[in-house]
Amino acid sequence: MGGTIGREAHMGEYVARAEIDVEAPRRTVWRVLTSNGAHPEIMFGAEVVSDWRLGSRIVWRGEWQGQSFEDHGRVIELEDLQEPWRIVLTHFSPLSGLPDEPENYHTLRFELDEIPGGTRITLDQDNNPTREAAEHSRANWAKMLEGVKAVAERPSV
């Protein structure tokens, strides 16, 4: 578990990276990441709605710091032909105060790598204007990944 913030020279922006190791098979982690509904541990308890196909819309609805939100984006890359391992989404939050325009969207890249005893999740978010913004995003995504870990490691009932 940890995170780094890198400067992508070719993109001219700061990238937030969060990583976590999960003691669960990659397919289990994939199901947690791509399931609809709400888990209190993930995305601040937001309800997630999508059909999780390439090009599909995704919506996150919930409440954060007493304010309702409805973030949205699209599934723009999906690598799960034999074993799921990468999904890339766009993400826009009206709470940012920015207009809903393509230049204000983030790209979220989730990669799932098999490791001894489980799966490593790496999440990169681009389009952060400053190092401070990237660090804030990294901290939020690290909390979200801790929630994914808690759900994925929970014994099945």
Rank of each mutant, 00 (worst) to 15 (best):
F110T: 08
W60T: 01
V49D: 11
V32N: 05
M43I: 12
R57M: 03
L108C: 07
H39N: 14
V75C: 10
N36C: 10
A24V: 04
D126M: 00
T122V: 14
R31M: 10
E41N: 09
G37A: 03
L123E: 12
E111M: 11
R109H: 02
M144L: 12
D80V: 06
D51S: 09
L78C: 02
E63I: 05
H106Q: 13
A38N: 14
E103C: 04
I87F: 05
V88L: 10
E101Y: 02
S68M: 06
A139L: 14
H91I: 01
D21Y: 03
L123W: 05
H136K: 12
K143Y: 13
L123R: 07
E132I: 12
A38H: 11
A134F: 07
V22M: 03
E83C: 03
I58D: 00
K143D: 15
A46R: 03
P84N: 05
P40K: 14
I121P: 02
P94Q: 07
T34D: 05
Q67N: 13
D124L: 15
S137Q: 11
E41H: 08
I42C: 12
L33V: 04
I87N: 01
H106S: 13
L123M: 12
L54M: 14
L108A: 09
M43G: 03
W60M: 05
N36I: 04
L98K: 15
W85Q: 12
R138M: 13
G97I: 03
M43L: 15
F92Y: 14
L33T: 03
W141Q: 08
E101N: 03
W30I: 04
E83N: 08
A139Q: 15
N127G: 09
P40G: 14
R74F: 13
G97D: 00
H91E: 10
S93Y: 03
P102I: 07
D80Q: 15
R120Q: 10
G73K: 01
A46Q: 03
E111H: 07
A46C: 07
D113Q: 11
N127M: 02
N127K: 09
P84C: 08
G97A: 04
F110H: 14
R86A: 13
D100S: 04
T90F: 08
